[in-house]
């Protein structure tokens, strides 16, 4: 792995703070990636780190964090051993909250908050025509989701909770995550005037400012997800004029024993399917990590595939991996661990 991938040389501001500290100071983080790559687990791990100040580089600084999940099938609560949200904000502890947000509910809130509502307006809103039209209005629902999340970083919600220091959005798995991030621009082209159009413009400018909004992309070191994340980086650059803050490469098979270096497959018994699977998946991982690194020189975390079911124990391990990769070397061991995994992937290539 090249030295450029070390987080210590990728300071966003050059202020000497770690990427982890920098991310924790944003108001809004969007965690994006293809379905099944562990996006929710990364979102939950980052949220837990920030809420509990769990990394040395955070120096115990704790933030009040809300994870917003956009997926009809709830997922995040399971990782944090919390009850399902069913649409509401669920409190996990003093500083950690989770919500499964229905885009339609966000849209209703947007309308309530930004438009004067009389009887007539209420009737328009409940009409089937409006329901159908708002489905087709480009970017309207996505803007509503962003509006909701951003709003919760500034004010107390209708549920009496908040404001939150940081909202972490676990972006929808379908389509490229960029359709969410590009929605405000799109909508503001369609609606020139009025509060919704103004709000879309506001959000578009908010998204273009890395100091306010962080983008963390998650992928597996496998062909399709890696391809998709590279396309995502390119679209973010073109459409939003900025770049993602970090790349998390998740689910890596462990390194092979040194003794296998020359020709791994010759070292294991013929027909030892499990050993062969390990060797070959590791090989794919290396190939795809190399491909990702050829196009991405920003901060990245390499997280192992772990023999753990989805739950708090997994989150604990991932937190540690993220803290080591993105927290600047407050303890030497973190940097060393990072370096050793880095050298190893590089050497095996």
């Amino acid at each position: 792995m090249s030295t450029t991938s070390s987080p210590s040389v990728q300071q966003p501001s050059g202020s000497g703070e770690s990427l982890l500290q920098s991310l924790s100071r944003r108001r809004f983080l969007v965690v994006t990636g293809k379905g099944g790559v562990g996006k929710s687990a990364v979102a939950a791990s980052l949220a837990t780190l920030f809420a509990r100040g769990g990394a040395d580089s955070l120096r115990g600084r704790r933030r009040k964090v809300l994870i917003v999940e956009i997926d009809p099938r709830e997922n995040v609560h399971q990782l944090l051993a919390a009850p399902p949200s069913g649409g509401d904000v669920v409190r996990i502890d003093d500083r950690l909250f989770v919500q499964n947000l229905k885009p339609r509910a966000a849209l209703d809130q947007l309308v309530r908050r930004h438009l004067a509502m009389g009887l007539l307006q209420r009737r328009v809103l409940s009409s089937e025509t409006y329901q159908q039209l708002s489905e087709g209005a480009p970017g309207l629902k996505e803007v509503a989701v962003l509006d909701y999340a951003e709003h919760r970083t500034r004010e107390r919600g209708e549920d009496g909770l908040g404001p939150f220091d940081l909202v972490i959005l676990d972006a929808p798995a379908t389509g490229h995550g960029v359709s969410l991030l590009a929605a405000p621009l799109l909508l503001s082209e369609v609606i020139q005037d009025g509060p919704v159009g103004r709000r879309a413009r506001e959000l578009a400018s908010f998204i273009s400012r890395p100091e306010a909004l962080g983008i963390v992309a998650v992928t597996l070191a496998e062909e399709l997800p890696a391809q998709e994340v590279l396309e995502l980086f390119e679209t973010i650059r073109q459409r939003l004029g900025r770049r993602a803050d970090a790349l998390v490469i998740n689910g890596l098979y462990p390194r092979l024993p040194e003794a296998w270096e020359e020709d791994p497959e010759a070292q294991v018994a013929a027909g030892d399917a499990a050993a062969l699977a390990w060797i070959r998946r590791r090989r794919i991982n290396q190939r795809e990590v190399a491909r990702l690194e050829a196009s991405w020189n920003g901060p990245q975390a390499l997280l192992p595939l772990l023999p753990l079911a989805r739950g708090p124990e997994l989150i604990k391990e991932l937190q540690q991996g993220l803290a080591e990769a993105f927290g600047e070397c407050c303890e030497a061991t973190a940097a060393e661990a990072m370096d050793s995994e880095a050298t190893e992937v590089g050497e095996e290539r």
Binding site: V111, H114, L115, A116, G118, L120, Q121, V124, L133, S134, G136, A137, L140, V190, I191, Q192, D193, G194, P195, V196, G197
Partner: peptide, 22 residues
Amino acid sequence: RLGRRMERFLDELIGLDFLRDV
């Protein structure tokens, strides 16, 4: 007058231009 208010509401919500396209 009611109609003008509705028109404004729709304009603010999804844009009259957009409605026209639809």
